[in-house]
Design a protein around this nucleic acid. Sequence first.
DNA 1: CGTGATGGTAAAGTGACTTGACCCTATATG
DNA 2: CATATAGGGTCAAGTCACTTTACCATCACG
Lengths: 143, 143
Amino acid sequence: MIGALLRMPVDVVHRQMFERLHEHGFTDFDPAHLILFQWPGPDDTRPSELAARLQISKQALNYLLGQLEQLGYLERRPDPHDQRGKRITVTKRGRAAIRVMRGAVDEIERAWAEQLGSERFAQLKTLLLTLNQLTAAREPAAE
Amino acid sequence: MIGALLRMPVDVVHRQMFERLHEHGFTDFDPAHLILFQWPGPDDTRPSELAARLQISKQALNYLLGQLEQLGYLERRPDPHDQRGKRITVTKRGRAAIRVMRGAVDEIERAWAEQLGSERFAQLKTLLLTLNQLTAAREPAAE
DNA sequence: CGTGATGGTAAAGTGACTTGACCCTATATG
DNA sequence: CATATAGGGTCAAGTCACTTTACCATCACG
């Protein structure tokens, strides 16, 4: 049952993000694009590096990059240090969308802090953080 | 960043479940099937009711039910009280798989309780639970 | 009864992926 | 220097968990 307990807040965050994105006119942003903007975001990273981090194939990433480039959220430009490679650059529009998403998350956090009380909410965050660190220690991230 | 904090434990639970399922010979169980076995499980429910609960279309559910029936995890039998309807019945094999999944979750919970200390883990669960209740109150579940 | 709602299914389409094959450039080795 | 091998990226085709559309069968009701 802990699975549901954890899953539900994630859903709430996602819903809030899309609600706010929609309100701010980012109606072309798709749920599938979210994965790309997970912390710390795609700015100034190489596609293959990002694909590895996100645990999807280079092709799948490229497919999403193509959409997001066409929508004007980011650009793929040649890597100056490696003739083979590209680097992803988040555009102004992309940064604006990120701000909206971060704002939505902040909003949720404030609401939760208010409902739980700020010290209990701080506890929750600390507990989740240590849990992350503990399990991250046991499961070395893909290199 | 709270998104990542919440998402990661969910992933850990899923990975553990599939590891254990695999070890117990349920190698044909697919990640897509997981949604069907979310609490409280599909046993003795009608397909359309379950589809509504899971927020997917009746057709999508039926597609998954077909697979799981073929794999012997459950059966669709006519509803005795309604000639139109069916009822889902979890088979012996299905119940065995559920036991393995629940066991995997228990295992994770014990590990976390050990790492965080049992009273801090209890705190975490309580906090998540109240968070769920609070947000559930604000967002009435689909009827 | 018959009319509209409800439960289920068949068929076709969609889209986010995967696998496989390939090109180009970089790096290492003889 | 030459050549092999590895790494970064892309094109093409296939897969599969869905959705949309359309439809049949049964139920509840006036």
